[in-house]
Amino acid sequence: MQKLTAPENMTDSLKSLEHIEFEGGRSLWNDAWIRLKRNRLAMFGFWVMLFLVSISLITPWLAPYGYEIQDLELGASGPSLAHWLGTDTLGRDLLTRLMYGGRVSLLVGFAATAVSLVVGVLWGIVAGYTGGSVDAVMMRIVDILYALPFMIFVILLMVVFGQSFLLLFLAIGLVEWLTMARIVRGQVQALRRQDFVSAAIVTGLSSGQIMRRHILPNIMGPVIVYITLTIPAVMLFEAFLSFLGLGVQPPQSSWGVLIATGVETMEEYPWLLIFPGLALSITLFALNFLGDGLRDALDPRSASGAGGIYE
């Protein structure tokens, strides 16, 4: 029951980063973009993600069948010309279901991660930078939320608000931001003691400015890595929430649900596990390449020529 999180979509998160970097000084974002473009692996990840997102957007026009259309007599059948990736136990086209499932999984993955990113990073920075009793109270709140029985919580949320997609993001974000906050806080605490921060304080910058200009760019590494870990975890976590009735409702599906049901029949109908698994893996690899590339590109210290904050 671990789970993680990511931004609405990549371009949005890039925009927010752009904003930060502009404030940091001259157009660092342009430099970063140039560096990113030089990183072939990262660009590969970028194009794969773009491809997956585009496919998702046009799935209703592209899908060969309806995701709910059954052929009970056919049942589960392996890949064939009519069904490229085979069919599931109710005779539904797997490729179609995978495409529709991708819409759900990508949306949930990015949106819920975005929630956790925003809340977790803000919470962690403020707690870590401010320290003292503010830090103590904020982190104890995190502890409390960790300890509450999450399943009961989700069941109650559904009773009060009904079943909705928004609730799904909220429920996942609610869990995911906690670890993010802890990681960020740890990093910030370490950074706060460093010389360049002390120097910034001496120059009379406000706490807000220091957090934005000096702290945030320096924690992007672990944050980006954690995001790329969060997205797939969220996609799988969604399958668990579907179990409680919160996720997608059948006959719709998602990658997580497809994988979870595919496991049950992996000996009899392996394609029902392999293809959804592949879809998730490809996404994950692409995201990681992109994430690593972004991390390198945005690293103030690796800026070519002009020294980063350190020098």
């Binding site: 709910e68 259309i69 059954q70 069941i155 559904m158 079943q163 579907s242 179990f243 409680l244 009735g245 409702q249 059948p250 006959p251």
Partner: peptide, 18 residues
């Protein structure tokens, strides 16, 4: 759900809970 949809032309929504 599909039988009702195909046979009678009506939609039902599936809801699962614990």
């Amino acid at each position: 759900q599909q039988m009702w949809k195909k046979g009678l032309g009506i939609d039902v929504r599936l809801v699962n809970t614990d």
